Computed example of a mutant assay.
Amino acid sequence: MSILMVEADVAQAAKTERVLHSCGHDVIKVTRGESAVRFLKYNAVDLVIFDWQVPGMSGFDILHWIRSHLGVEPPFLFLTRSIPEVEIVHALEAGADDYVIKPFDTAGLAARVNALLLRAQRNSKPVQSIRIGAYVLDPTQRNISFQGTAVKLTTKEFDVIACLFDNAGRIVSRALLEKLAWGKTLDGGSRTIDTHIYRLRRKLQLRPENGARLTTFMRTATDWMILASLAPQ
Protein backbone atom coordinates (compact mmCIF):
# COMPACT_ATOMS: atom_id res chain seq x y z
CA MET A 1 0.00 0.00 0.00
CA SER A 2 1.11 3.56 -0.73
CA ILE A 3 1.06 6.02 2.20
CA LEU A 4 1.72 9.76 2.10
CA MET A 5 3.31 10.95 5.36
CA VAL A 6 3.36 14.68 6.16
CA GLU A 7 5.79 15.17 9.04
CA ALA A 8 8.31 17.97 9.70
CA ASP A 9 10.04 16.31 12.68
CA VAL A 10 12.90 14.25 11.22
CA ALA A 11 13.15 11.85 14.17
CA GLN A 12 9.38 11.37 14.32
CA ALA A 13 9.22 10.83 10.56
CA ALA A 14 11.90 8.15 10.77
CA LYS A 15 10.07 6.35 13.58
CA THR A 16 6.77 6.43 11.73
CA GLU A 17 8.40 5.31 8.50
CA ARG A 18 9.96 2.28 10.24
CA VAL A 19 6.55 1.23 11.50
CA LEU A 20 4.97 1.58 8.06
CA HIS A 21 7.81 -0.24 6.29
CA SER A 22 7.57 -3.09 8.80
CA CYS A 23 3.94 -3.52 7.70
CA GLY A 24 5.01 -3.74 4.06
CA HIS A 25 3.82 -0.27 2.97
CA ASP A 26 5.51 2.18 0.62
CA VAL A 27 6.00 5.65 2.13
CA ILE A 28 6.17 9.04 0.44
CA LYS A 29 7.49 11.74 2.81
CA VAL A 30 6.87 15.49 2.67
CA THR A 31 7.39 18.12 5.36
CA ARG A 32 4.67 20.70 4.58
CA GLY A 33 0.96 20.71 3.82
CA GLU A 34 1.48 22.59 0.56
CA SER A 35 3.81 19.82 -0.65
CA ALA A 36 1.16 17.24 0.22
CA VAL A 37 -1.43 19.06 -1.89
CA ARG A 38 0.93 19.32 -4.85
CA PHE A 39 1.66 15.61 -4.64
CA LEU A 40 -1.99 14.55 -4.28
CA LYS A 41 -3.03 16.60 -7.28
CA TYR A 42 -1.22 14.15 -9.55
CA ASN A 43 -0.75 10.98 -7.49
CA ALA A 44 -3.10 8.53 -5.78
CA VAL A 45 -2.31 7.07 -2.37
CA ASP A 46 -4.04 4.59 -0.10
CA LEU A 47 -3.66 6.58 3.14
CA VAL A 48 -2.55 10.02 4.35
CA ILE A 49 -0.80 10.37 7.72
CA PHE A 50 -0.57 14.02 8.75
CA ASP A 51 1.11 15.72 11.71
CA TRP A 52 -1.61 18.13 12.93
CA GLN A 53 1.01 20.76 13.84
CA VAL A 54 3.03 20.59 10.62
CA PRO A 55 4.25 24.00 9.30
CA GLY A 56 2.30 25.72 6.55
CA MET A 57 -1.26 24.57 5.91
CA SER A 58 -3.11 23.60 9.08
CA GLY A 59 -4.51 20.14 9.69
CA PHE A 60 -8.01 21.44 8.95
CA ASP A 61 -6.80 23.09 5.73
CA ILE A 62 -5.25 19.92 4.30
CA LEU A 63 -8.19 17.79 5.46
CA HIS A 64 -10.66 20.19 3.82
CA TRP A 65 -8.67 20.14 0.57
CA ILE A 66 -8.56 16.34 0.47
CA ARG A 67 -12.26 15.89 1.14
CA SER A 68 -13.23 18.70 -1.27
CA HIS A 69 -11.06 17.49 -4.14
CA LEU A 70 -10.60 13.75 -3.59
CA GLY A 71 -13.82 12.79 -1.78
CA VAL A 72 -13.91 10.23 1.03
CA GLU A 73 -10.71 8.55 -0.10
CA PRO A 74 -7.92 8.32 0.84
CA PRO A 75 -8.38 7.69 4.57
CA PHE A 76 -6.87 10.43 6.76
CA LEU A 77 -5.01 9.67 10.02
CA PHE A 78 -3.60 12.57 11.99
CA LEU A 79 -0.88 12.58 14.64
CA THR A 80 -0.86 15.12 17.45
CA ARG A 81 0.86 15.82 20.76
CA SER A 82 -1.62 18.26 22.28
CA ILE A 83 -4.93 19.28 20.77
CA PRO A 84 -8.16 20.12 22.64
CA GLU A 85 -10.76 17.35 22.60
CA VAL A 86 -13.22 19.69 20.91
CA GLU A 87 -10.81 20.10 17.98
CA ILE A 88 -10.40 16.33 17.73
CA VAL A 89 -14.18 16.00 17.50
CA HIS A 90 -14.31 18.73 14.85
CA ALA A 91 -11.56 17.01 12.87
CA LEU A 92 -13.38 13.67 12.96
CA GLU A 93 -16.63 15.33 11.94
CA ALA A 94 -14.83 17.12 9.10
CA GLY A 95 -13.72 13.83 7.61
CA ALA A 96 -10.64 12.60 9.49
CA ASP A 97 -10.82 8.84 9.98
CA ASP A 98 -8.69 8.41 13.08
CA TYR A 99 -5.95 9.99 15.19
CA VAL A 100 -2.97 8.92 17.28
CA ILE A 101 -1.50 10.82 20.24
CA LYS A 102 2.28 11.26 20.35
CA PRO A 103 4.38 9.65 21.61
CA PHE A 104 2.67 6.58 20.17
CA ASP A 105 3.12 2.87 20.64
CA THR A 106 4.47 1.36 17.41
CA ALA A 107 2.17 -1.66 17.58
CA GLY A 108 -0.82 0.61 18.16
CA LEU A 109 0.03 2.80 15.17
CA ALA A 110 0.48 -0.25 12.94
CA ALA A 111 -2.90 -1.60 14.04
CA ARG A 112 -4.65 1.72 13.34
CA VAL A 113 -3.04 2.03 9.91
CA ASN A 114 -3.87 -1.52 8.87
CA ALA A 115 -7.45 -1.19 10.12
CA LEU A 116 -7.98 1.98 8.06
CA LEU A 117 -6.51 0.39 4.94
CA LEU A 118 -8.63 -2.74 5.37
CA ARG A 119 -11.78 -0.67 5.83
CA ALA A 120 -10.95 1.37 2.73
CA GLN A 121 -10.52 -1.84 0.71
CA ARG A 122 -13.90 -3.12 1.89
CA ASN A 123 -15.57 0.20 1.09
CA SER A 124 -14.17 0.07 -2.46
CA LYS A 125 -16.22 -3.03 -3.29
CA PRO A 126 -19.42 -2.34 -5.26
CA VAL A 127 -22.51 -2.29 -3.06
CA GLN A 128 -26.19 -1.69 -3.68
CA SER A 129 -28.33 1.13 -2.40
CA ILE A 130 -30.41 0.43 0.71
CA ARG A 131 -34.10 1.43 0.65
CA ILE A 132 -36.09 1.72 3.86
CA GLY A 133 -39.42 3.52 3.81
CA ALA A 134 -39.00 6.97 2.29
CA TYR A 135 -35.19 6.73 2.51
CA VAL A 136 -32.59 5.65 -0.05
CA LEU A 137 -28.98 5.32 1.11
CA ASP A 138 -26.26 5.00 -1.54
CA PRO A 139 -23.03 3.65 0.07
CA THR A 140 -21.01 4.21 -3.12
CA GLN A 141 -21.87 7.89 -3.52
CA ARG A 142 -22.11 8.26 0.26
CA ASN A 143 -25.43 10.10 0.24
CA ILE A 144 -28.94 9.58 1.54
CA SER A 145 -32.24 10.96 0.29
CA PHE A 146 -35.59 11.38 2.03
CA GLN A 147 -38.69 11.38 -0.17
CA GLY A 148 -36.45 11.91 -3.19
CA THR A 149 -34.54 14.88 -1.75
CA ALA A 150 -30.87 14.58 -0.78
CA VAL A 151 -30.12 15.25 2.90
CA LYS A 152 -26.78 16.89 3.69
CA LEU A 153 -24.83 14.98 6.35
CA THR A 154 -21.32 15.28 7.72
CA THR A 155 -18.88 12.46 7.00
CA LYS A 156 -19.37 10.85 10.41
CA GLU A 157 -23.14 11.36 10.39
CA PHE A 158 -23.24 9.38 7.16
CA ASP A 159 -20.98 6.69 8.63
CA VAL A 160 -23.34 6.30 11.60
CA ILE A 161 -26.56 6.13 9.58
CA ALA A 162 -24.91 3.76 7.08
CA CYS A 163 -24.07 1.39 9.94
CA LEU A 164 -27.66 1.52 11.19
CA PHE A 165 -29.18 1.02 7.72
CA ASP A 166 -26.80 -1.85 7.03
CA ASN A 167 -28.02 -3.51 10.24
CA ALA A 168 -31.73 -2.65 9.84
CA GLY A 169 -33.89 -4.68 12.19
CA ARG A 170 -30.97 -5.54 14.48
CA ILE A 171 -29.81 -3.83 17.66
CA VAL A 172 -26.52 -1.99 17.20
CA SER A 173 -24.65 -1.43 20.45
CA ARG A 174 -22.59 1.64 21.24
CA ALA A 175 -19.42 -0.47 21.15
CA LEU A 176 -20.25 -1.88 17.72
CA LEU A 177 -21.21 1.54 16.36
CA GLU A 178 -17.88 2.95 17.56
CA LYS A 179 -15.96 0.20 15.77
CA LEU A 180 -17.98 0.40 12.55
CA ALA A 181 -18.20 4.19 12.22
CA TRP A 182 -14.97 5.30 13.95
CA GLY A 183 -12.88 2.17 13.66
CA LYS A 184 -11.98 2.30 17.36
CA THR A 185 -13.35 2.56 20.89
CA LEU A 186 -14.10 6.16 21.89
CA ASP A 187 -13.33 7.66 25.29
CA GLY A 188 -15.80 6.52 27.95
CA GLY A 189 -16.91 10.10 28.69
CA SER A 190 -17.33 11.11 25.07
CA ARG A 191 -20.77 12.32 23.94
CA THR A 192 -19.86 12.15 20.26
CA ILE A 193 -22.20 9.27 19.39
CA ASP A 194 -25.10 10.83 21.30
CA THR A 195 -24.62 14.07 19.38
CA HIS A 196 -24.58 12.26 16.04
CA ILE A 197 -27.73 10.29 16.91
CA TYR A 198 -29.51 13.52 17.90
CA ARG A 199 -28.53 15.25 14.65
CA LEU A 200 -29.61 12.28 12.54
CA ARG A 201 -33.03 12.15 14.19
CA ARG A 202 -33.53 15.82 13.39
CA LYS A 203 -32.06 15.90 9.87
CA LEU A 204 -33.66 12.69 8.61
CA GLN A 205 -36.98 12.91 10.48
CA LEU A 206 -36.68 9.26 11.52
CA ARG A 207 -40.27 8.60 12.52
CA PRO A 208 -42.67 5.66 11.93
CA GLU A 209 -44.79 7.67 9.49
CA ASN A 210 -41.73 8.07 7.27
CA GLY A 211 -41.09 4.33 7.15
CA ALA A 212 -38.31 3.96 9.71
CA ARG A 213 -37.95 4.13 13.47
CA LEU A 214 -34.77 4.88 15.40
CA THR A 215 -35.07 3.53 18.93
CA THR A 216 -32.66 4.28 21.75
CA PHE A 217 -32.23 2.01 24.78
CA MET A 218 -30.48 3.00 28.03
CA ARG A 219 -29.14 0.85 30.82
CA THR A 220 -28.15 1.85 34.35
CA ALA A 221 -25.74 4.70 34.97
CA THR A 222 -23.00 2.23 35.87
CA ASP A 223 -23.42 0.28 32.66
CA TRP A 224 -24.69 2.87 30.19
CA MET A 225 -24.72 2.41 26.44
CA ILE A 226 -26.89 3.37 23.56
CA LEU A 227 -28.51 0.55 21.59
CA ALA A 228 -30.07 1.72 18.36
CA SER A 229 -32.12 -0.26 15.88
CA LEU A 230 -33.33 1.13 12.58
CA ALA A 231 -36.16 -1.12 11.39
CA PRO A 232 -38.38 -0.96 8.30
CA GLN A 233 -42.04 -0.34 9.02
Score class of each variant (00 low, 15 high):
residue 48 V to G: 09
residue 44 A to S: 08
residue 72 V to L: 14
residue 91 A to I: 13
residue 64 H to S: 15
residue 68 S to D: 15
residue 86 V to L: 10
residue 81 R to L: 13
residue 45 V to K: 02
residue 74 P to Q: 09
residue 43 N to H: 13
residue 69 H to D: 12
residue 62 I to E: 09
residue 77 L to T: 05
residue 49 I to K: 04
residue 54 V to A: 12
residue 49 I to P: 02
residue 45 V to I: 06
residue 74 P to R: 07
residue 68 S to H: 15
residue 56 G to Y: 02
residue 43 N to D: 01
residue 85 E to D: 14
residue 52 W to D: 07
residue 84 P to S: 11
residue 91 A to G: 15
residue 64 H to R: 15
residue 86 V to T: 07
residue 80 T to R: 06
residue 57 M to A: 11
residue 56 G to R: 06
residue 44 A to H: 04
residue 86 V to Q: 09
residue 77 L to H: 01
residue 77 L to G: 05
residue 66 I to L: 13
residue 79 L to V: 04
residue 75 P to A: 10
residue 91 A to R: 11
residue 45 V to F: 03
residue 48 V to E: 02
residue 90 H to Y: 13
residue 72 V to E: 13
residue 45 V to H: 03
residue 76 F to M: 12
residue 51 D to C: 08
residue 48 V to Q: 04
residue 55 P to H: 09
residue 62 I to L: 06
residue 89 V to F: 05
residue 50 F to R: 12
residue 69 H to T: 14
residue 43 N to S: 13
residue 44 A to E: 06
residue 48 V to N: 04
residue 84 P to K: 11
residue 84 P to L: 08
residue 77 L to R: 10
residue 57 M to F: 04
residue 78 F to Q: 05
residue 65 W to T: 01
residue 78 F to I: 10
residue 89 V to N: 09
residue 83 I to P: 04
residue 47 L to G: 00
residue 56 G to M: 10
residue 52 W to P: 00
residue 49 I to C: 09
residue 53 Q to W: 06
residue 59 G to E: 06
residue 90 H to G: 14
residue 82 S to G: 01
residue 60 F to R: 14
residue 74 P to N: 07
residue 86 V to A: 11
residue 72 V to A: 14
residue 46 D to R: 07
residue 44 A to C: 02
residue 89 V to P: 02
residue 71 G to W: 06
residue 51 D to E: 12
residue 44 A to Y: 02
residue 79 L to F: 03
residue 69 H to K: 14
residue 58 S to T: 14
residue 47 L to R: 01
residue 75 P to E: 08
residue 63 L to A: 03
residue 60 F to D: 13
residue 84 P to C: 05
residue 55 P to E: 10
residue 76 F to A: 09
residue 75 P to C: 11
residue 73 E to G: 00
residue 61 D to F: 09
residue 67 R to L: 02
residue 69 H to S: 13
residue 67 R to V: 03
residue 55 P to G: 03
residue 74 P to M: 04
residue 47 L to S: 02
residue 58 S to G: 12
residue 72 V to N: 12
residue 59 G to F: 00
residue 80 T to C: 04
residue 59 G to L: 01
residue 51 D to S: 10
